[in-house]
Structures are given as structure tokens and as C-alpha cells.
Amino acid sequence: MPVPTPRLIWSSIALGAGGVVLLSIGLTEWFNLHPCHLCIFQRLLFMILAVLALTAALFATGRGGRILGFAVALTAAAGLATALYQSFLERQPPSMDFSCVGAEPTLIERLVERLGEWQPLLFLATGFCDEMGPQFLGLSLANAALVGFLMALIAAVAALMRHGQAPNVQPRRDAI
């Protein structure tokens, strides 16, 4: 069984991340969801992931491809950490004093607010991070994003490990 090339892996990550962004926008509109700052930040990270992975797929050779690959892995890791934090917030009982909204806006909240002013359809945050929201197959949307970022991170590490290796070419049996 042939092993996928880094270019194919980067393309798959780009396609998957782009699909997640479109699905996120569609679900928000269709089900009148109110995404929180962390949800919007994860959407932004999936957008960045799609662009970086597509660029890595186009320029998958040489040192530049490796640098882009590390950027993809770093973005996926940041998304994984964000989704993990949001999943933690969702699981806290209402009596606990955990919230994603503090007295002083964080860097993520300020970024999301600015982006929401610029492009409300994509980046307007109107919900709270500690509310679970709808579930699909027992997963909240934050849990589903966690799985998506984890898969992207694993794929990026696999592509980085394959980067620079000679393609797996099987010798012909009829060659003498």
C-alpha cells in the first residue's frame, strides 16, 4: 500500500479545514447558533489552517515546505488547546465560577471583537463559551473541533516526518 505524499496530506488538511469552516458557517445560520469568542477563534484557526496547508501543498518541496508544515502543525496545536479549554469550560457545573468572559478582555476576545466589526457574518461572537449548545453523536461542537484539530495535527506530523524522504518506489519485478 503506497504511503501518501506530504503534498497529498497537506491538500487533505486544507480541504478538511475548509470544509469545517463552511460547515461552521452553515450550522450557525441554519440552526441560529450563537457562537462564543472561543468558537469564532477556532473558526479563524481553521481558516488559517486551510490557507497554510494549501500553501504547503503548493510549495511542498524544500525548506519552505518544511517551515509551512511546522506552521500548520503549530496552528493545529493552538486550535487543539483552544478546543480543549472550551470543552473544559462546557463540562463545569453552573455553580463553578468558570467563564471565558472576564472583567478585562483577553487578546483573543479583542481580536474576535475587531474581526466581528469588520466581517460580522464570519466573526461575530454572540454566545457564551461555557454553554454546551447542540450535540452530534454525543460530541459538542467544541469536542468535534477538538477531534478535527487533533486529526490535522497528527496528519501534519506525519507529513513532516515524510518530508524530504524519497518517494516509496517499488522495484519492477521484470527488471534484470
Rank of each mutant, 00 (worst) to 15 (best):
A83L: 02
R114E: 13
A77D: 03
W118C: 02
S87I: 01
A78Y: 01
N143C: 05
P134V: 13
L49N: 05
A73G: 08
P105Y: 06
L124D: 12
V72H: 04
Q86G: 01
H37D: 08
C39S: 10
M1F: 05
R162L: 15
I13C: 01
L84I: 00
M161R: 15
I67Y: 05
S24K: 05
P94H: 07
I108Q: 11
F136A: 09
W10N: 00
I25Y: 10
S99T: 14
G127N: 08
M1P: 06
A76S: 12
M132T: 15
P167M: 07
A71D: 00
P4E: 03
D97S: 07
P93G: 06
F98Y: 14
A73T: 02
A73W: 09
P4W: 00
L160D: 06
A103S: 13
F136R: 10
A83I: 02
G65C: 03
W10T: 01
G116A: 12
G18Y: 02
N143R: 13
F59L: 06
R43K: 09
A152T: 02
P35L: 09
G127Y: 06
T126S: 13
Q135N: 02
A158F: 05
T5S: 15
G26F: 15
V147I: 14
G69D: 04
A50W: 03
M96Q: 11
L44A: 09
I67V: 13
M47G: 15
Q170N: 10
A76E: 06
L115M: 15
T55V: 09
P120R: 11
P120Y: 09
G102M: 11
I154N: 00
D174Q: 12
G148C: 05
S87A: 10
A71C: 12
A77C: 10
H163Q: 12
G102Q: 12
A17E: 06
L8E: 10
R7S: 03
V20H: 02
A145I: 00
Q42T: 12
Q165E: 10
P167T: 07
G18V: 01
E117K: 14
V147F: 09
R66D: 00
G148A: 03
A50M: 09
R173Y: 11
I67E: 00
T5F: 04
F98H: 11
H163E: 05
F41N: 09
R173G: 04
M151S: 10
L54S: 13
V72M: 01
P2F: 03
L54F: 14
L23R: 07
P2D: 04
L124N: 12
L23C: 04
L160E: 06
V20K: 02
G164D: 07
A166S: 13
C36F: 04
F88S: 05
P171M: 08
M1H: 06
V112G: 14
W10Y: 04
G69K: 08
Q170A: 14
A166H: 12
A145M: 03
E104R: 14
G62N: 05
T126P: 01
N32S: 15
A77Q: 08
P35I: 09
A53C: 06
A81N: 04
L38S: 06
Q135S: 10
A71H: 00
L23P: 00
I108Y: 04
